[in-house]
Design a protein around this nucleic acid. Structure first.
Length: 1122
RNA sequence: GGGCGAUUAGCUCAGCUGGUUAGAGCGCGUCGCUGAUAACGACGAGGUCAGUGGUUCGAGUCCACUAUCGCCCA
């Protein structure tokens, strides 16, 4: 017999079902067709943030991809075309480090020895080592993205686009070379990337803590009135540092202009109390912390601004940097960075070792004391007093020459102490970074570096940020906004190997520099055919050319990988500006900027920033006042970020809240979840568990809960529908129109449309938790636990009638139920499609395509449901809510009364909160009777004298008006006659309340009436609702209740006998006493309930037989399939 | 050390612009119901809404500080 629908297996295996759906998508080419289908609303642009495929994908990659898939599917159904080009991040340090580890390298020099070409070849081979896993995971979770034609950052085309951008920036003066402070590892002579530095931070490192005395030039101070002109005692600026080795690099001292500085008289060393006193300058508020109590005297205080510009003599000398002019050194400067929380309020400034910005802004020269391998330079020695000859001779090596910089600390300290230049020395424990590979200390060093001058467009960065739809919103002004406000130039160059080379060529002396923007340009410069040139190092390093008689060589740098990922809007199409083909230009125009991106929160200063900064630079309209030229995309777009909306995702942690890491062994293999619970359960859990930005604790048991709570409930409703539809074969198309269906159907349709509106709004607001929870609550609470439970009888044995043609035709009531539930299931399938693409596809295939082969052959090719606002009946939904509330109270009342639900009761008294609700609930009262198994309902008027009332103020209305009198008013209302006030409320007249000092006129809506239970009923009340059951059971009702017991036992018997739900039976029942009477009286109803074609009290031979005791009476029945 | 965010029941989370008795699901206990259900219903145990102070007639909600956790930066 051919069924209307494919049978639905109640023991559904979701992972297996999902694999079949994947196959169906492949066979029907659904993904491609979803992009090719007509897009009346135009393009909606999604950018894939490229992952790296050199590691196995973990559960945290699934979450990002689950979100990345949701919105493109949603927008596609809404009528947009959403192209989804995949991408892979292939360059960068993680790859290099993996290869270095494999080769056992501990420092960068070993790479040069090994050979850059060989090294990079290994990197290239490694980056896709896990791409099979990635592609399999991507497909299995249903992430639709074009993996056949992804952008790959290591390709020549991609690199060339990066070059084009850099050349544009260079030509506009926005790509410049300058000194930069870096964390340098002298042990491996390498600059470390910031994340490498953070890997190596150690807490509680013991370092020197010294207070050197810088001899002030007394004349300068006397001139400003800080000391007397005749002062002869030594005057020192007292500084504090933890790096004695940088003292030879000192070229300035910094004070805070707005802080008070004290001139203190004290002994020459901290621990001395006697002896000749010297004079010190330091921040006034730190004096008591630096000097021992009772050993010092504050002579005067002056503002820091007064000290600025005075000079002092150096303690040690070092090697001046290129072009450094020592004439400008050894000055006191004022700067806000100076902190007064520790030290002395006078900061020793060594521009070459960490204080580059300060030095630069005050014109202090860079002086070096240590080379890049951590060896102290030969020039370093104690400074000699003016006019004194160096005993060892200036040409000879200094006493610390060649020493490891940290080893020189103690010698320098001792020598300064001996020279009387040390006020105190000790140690301090603090956090300090070490090379994470060899454990050796790092040092802050200024190096030449290339920068993108993002500070030139800072205002534009902020303005463009204001227009981004951040989700959550606080990132705009918080994490990201703060970052932009403190914007510093983007340090672009890296001394690395496996990355896009910086395309700058310079002359031997570095005097002339040229940025190359394309391979074609390089061919013109060299006169060579470079079509087959690998743009990576070392090959590109070998390309040199002559220009105006000078040889140009490429600088040795690669660029920050964030630059590469930030360039993807342009580089994914191999965009080269005006040199691009027409097709590429059109592609770029259609796909810029993105409507949506989605990544985890750690990308704020990573991809989010690099995308934003480059797009801002590219679309910069220019600034005539400062002579800034417009960017190359200014003609295409107003100033903009690269993205309009972004979901910022939180991280996934394990079930104990701990970060997942391979070393802890607490990572979750996505496949373990995908194979057990399936992709939809996982996706739904990820969407609904918590706000996207929240840190999520992941546990498989929560995914399991999602599966049982939501997906299985939906599946059961679906299975229920199909099971009975296949028996009854309803023609849902011929069902009565909505308006003519029973109230409960109209209610469900109303709710459905409200849910459509709600889910649509939530997804348009990039809010998956709200969308998924609306769907879940609707399906579980309203469709399954209310509608289907309340209406299941309408779906089975529904009294088929013969149609005029002799065909079987369902009565309109059943047909309405089928049509309503069918519509709900189909619409829910569409609403769920972006979030649970597999289950929704399965439902759609069976529920829609079985009936209408002409329909789109995938749910993902259908249009997003539109909410029919005309079908949303707010009053009806409010009334049903009230009814559900009453049923809840009625059940509680029954439970309290001890009368079981099978026993019918004669009457229930009901009171609701308003006249409108009363009318509404009255129209739904048959639901109430059925649900509570009661014969009649009596509605009490809202102000019926049958009940008394507690009076309460309606606070949202009265709070502002009455204010402080609220407690008085409460007390007064409690003392008033509830019935009398209720009568006022009913009549719509104000009530006068007398308080101590005043009287208040309260309008009816200012008061809340809480009904109190009537005496002698099993009653439950809550917030104005009241349900009271009359629990007197008549004999007739008792017999009815007994028969319901018999029905239940026979039904159980049917099940035990292995009968099908639609099988008809021959039934015999033998009972005694009142039970026999009850069976006789309600025999017809009994037979109808259990599908008995005949009912007698004779034994039925060869049949299933059972004996029971019902309410003390014996019962035996036998059933046989008819 | 700085910035941003979080902290509500054993677990996962709601709680809108301050307002009546702080909720849901899971888990636990008792009882009930059951021909779609791997279910469902009622009742119960479980909360000083991280802490302290403030604003207010009224604070889970607003403000300040503190603690703990996470991320980013140093």
């Amino acid at each position: 017999m051919s069924r209307m629908f494919d049978e639905v297996n109640a023991n559904v295996d979701f992972p297996a079902l999902e694999r079949r759906v994947i196959q169906l998508w492949q066979e029907r080419d659904v993904f491609r067709r979803s992009i090719d289908r007509p897009a009346p609303r135009g393009d909606w642009v999604f950018y894939e943030g490229p992952p790296t495929a050199n590691g196995k994908p973990g559960i945290h990659h699934v979450i990002a991809r689950a979100f990345k898939d949701l919105f493109p599917r949603f927008k596609t159904m809404q009528g947009y075309r959403v192209g989804r080009k995949g991408g892979w991040d292939t360059h960068g340090l993680p790859v290099e480090i993996a290869i270095e580890k494999r080769l056992g390298f501990t420092n960068k020099g070993q790479i040069d020895e090994y050979g850059i070409a060989e090294f990079n070849a290994l990197c290239r081979a490694d980056v896709f080592s896990n791409i099979q896993d990635w592609n399999a995971m991507t497909e299995r979770i249903g992430f639709w993205i074009d993996l056949a034609d992804p952008y790959v950052t290591y390709t020549n085309d991609y690199i060339e686009s990066c070059w084009w951008i850099m050349k544009d920036l260079f030509d506009r003066g926005l790509l410049v070379e300058d000194y930069k402070t870096t964390w340098h590892s002298p042990s491996s002579n390498t600059t470390l990337a910031s994340h490498e530095v953070s890997l190596g931070y150690q807490e509680d490192v013991e370092d020197p803590s010294i207070y050197p005395k810088f001899p002030a030039v007394r004349g300068d101070l006397a001139e400003r009135g800080v000391i007397d002109a005749g002062e002869t005692r030594p005057v020192s600026f007292l500084a504090w540092t933890t790096t004695p080795w940088t003292l030879a690099a000192n070229s300035g001292l910094a004070v805070r202009a707005d802080a008070a500085y004290a001139l203190v008289a004290a002994p020459a060393r901290r621990r001395e109390s006697a002896g000749e006193r010297e004079l010190y300058l330091l921040a006034n508020e730190l004096v008591a912390r630096v000097f021992e109590p009772g050993t010092y005297e504050v002579l005067t205080t002056v503002p820091g601004a007064t000290l600025a510009g005075t000079t002092y003599r150096p303690l040690l000398v070092g090697r001046p940097g290129d072009g450094a002019d020592l004439a400008s050194a050894y000055r006191v400067v004022a700067d806000d960075f100076v902190s007064l929380t520790d030290g002395t309020g006078i900061v020793h400034v060594a521009p070459a070792y960490g204080d580059l910005e300060v030095g630069r802004s005050h014109g202090l020269p860079a002086v070096f004391s240590v080379d890049l391998t951590g060896k102290v330079l030969p020039e370093v020695r104690l400074a000699q007093p003016a006019g004194a000859a160096d005993p060892a001779g200036a040409a000879a090596n200094g006493p610390y020459a060649g020493a490891w910089f940290k080893d020189a600390d103690s010698a320098i300290t001792a020598d300064l102490d001996a020279a009387g230049r040390m006020f105190d020395s000790g140690t301090v424990r603090h956090a300090y970074p070490f090379n994470w590979r060899d454990g050796k200390p790092l040092m802050n060093v200024a190096k030449r570096s290339w920068y993108i001058r993002t500070t030139a467009v800072k205002e534009l960065l902020l303005a463009n940020n204001d227009r981004i739809g951040w989700h959550p919103d606080h990132v705009r002004t918080g994490r990201f906004g703060k970052w932009l406000e403190n914007n510093i130039d983007w340090a672009l160059s890296r001394e690395r190997y496996w990355g896009a080379p910086l395309p700058i060529w310079e002359t031997e002396d570095g005097g002339k520099k040229l940025c190359v923007g394309s391979v074609a340009e390089l061919e013109r410069l060299t006169g060579r055919d470079l079509k087959d040139l690998d743009l990576h190092r070392p090959y590109v390093d070998e390309i040199t050319f002559e220009l105006n008689g000078e040889t140009y060589r490429r600088v040795p740098y690669t660029v920050d990988v964030w630059f590469e990922s930030g360039a993807m809007p342009y580089a994914q199409w191999h965009y080269l500006g005006d040199a691009s083909g027409l097709e590429v230009k059109e592609r770029l125009a259609a796909n810029f900027p993105a409507d949506y991106i989605c990544e985890a929160v750690d990308q704020t200063r990573g991809w989010f920033y690099s995308l934003h900064a480059l797009a801002t630079l590219m679309t910069d309209p220019g600034d005539a006042a400062s002579g800034r030229r417009p960017g190359p995309l200014a003609h295409l777009s107003r100033p903009t970020s690269a993205f309009r909306n972004v979901n910022v995702l939180g991280h996934i942690v394990d079930e104990n809240g701990e970060k997942m890491s391979k070393s802890k062994g607490n990572t979750v293999d996505p496949w373990s979840v995908l194979d057990a619970q399936g992709a939809d359960a996982l996706r739904w859990y990820l969407y609904s568990a918590s706000p996207p930005e929240a840190t999520k604790r992941f546990s498989a048991s929560l995914v399991d809960e999602t599966l049982r709570d939501f997906l299985l409930t939906l599946w059961n409703v679906y299975g229920f529908f199909v099971l009975y539809a296949n028996l009854e074969e309803p023609d849902v198309a011929s069902a009565p129109p909505h308006a003519e269906r029973p109230l409960v159907d109209r209610w469900l349709v109303s709710r459905l449309n409200a849910v459509v509106a709600g889910v649509t709004a939530a997804l348009e607001g990039f809010d998956p938790p709200t969308a998924s929870r609306l769907g879940r609550d609707f399906v579980v609470d309203e469709v399954s636990n209310w509608y289907v439970r309340r209406n299941r009888r309408r779906f089975w044995r529904s009294g088929q009638v013969q149609g005029e043609s002799g065909a079987r035709v369902l009565d309109p009531d059943s047909l309405s139920a089928y049509a309503t539930l069918h519509e709900v299931l189909v619409t829910v399938a569409k609403l769920m499609a972006p979030m649970a693409p597999f289950t929704s596809e399965a439902l759609y295939q069976n529920l829609v395509l079985s009936l209408d082969p002409a329909a789109p052959d995938s749910v993902h090719l259908t249009d997003w449901p539109k909410a029919d606002t005309a079908a949303i009946d707010e009053d009806l939904m409010r009334d049903m809510r009230a009814l559900m509330r009453l049923v809840e109270l009625g059940r509680a009342a029954r439970a309290a009364s001890g009368v079981k639900l099978r026993q019918p009761l004669p009457e229930v008294l009901v009171r609701v909160r308003s006249e409108e609700e009363l009318a509404g609930v009255r129209s739904l009262s048959d639901q109430l009777l059925d649900e509570l198994n009661v014969k009649a309902v009596r509605f009490l008027a809202v102000t019926d004298g049958f009940v008394d009332y507690a009076l309460k103020p309606n606070l949202p209305r009265l709070g502002k008006r009455v204010g402080k009198l609220i407690p008085q008013l409460r007390a007064a209302l409690e003392g008033m006659d509830g019935r009398a006030v209720a009568a006022n409320v009913r009549a719509g007249v104000p009530t006068t309340v007398t308080l101590a000092d005043t009287t208040l006129e309260l309008e009816p809506e200012d008061l809340l009436l809480d009904a109190r239970s009537p005496e002698g009923y099993a009653a439950q009340e809550e917030r104005g609702y009241l349900v009271a059951l009359d629990t007197r059971v008549s004999d007739a009702l008792r017999r009815e209740g007994l028969v319901r017991d018999v029905v239940r036992l026979v039904q159980n018997g049917r099940k035990a006998a292995g009968l099908d739900v639609s099988d008809r039976i021959v039934l015999s029942v033998r009972a005694e006493g009142e039970l026999a009477e009850a069976v006789r009286e309600h025999g017809a109803a009994l037979a109808r309930e259990v599908l008995a074609v005949s009912l007698d009290d004779a034994p039925t031979p060869g049949s299933f037989q059972e004996s029971h005791e019902v309410d003390g009476a014996a019962l035996t029945f036998a059933i046989r399939k008819a």
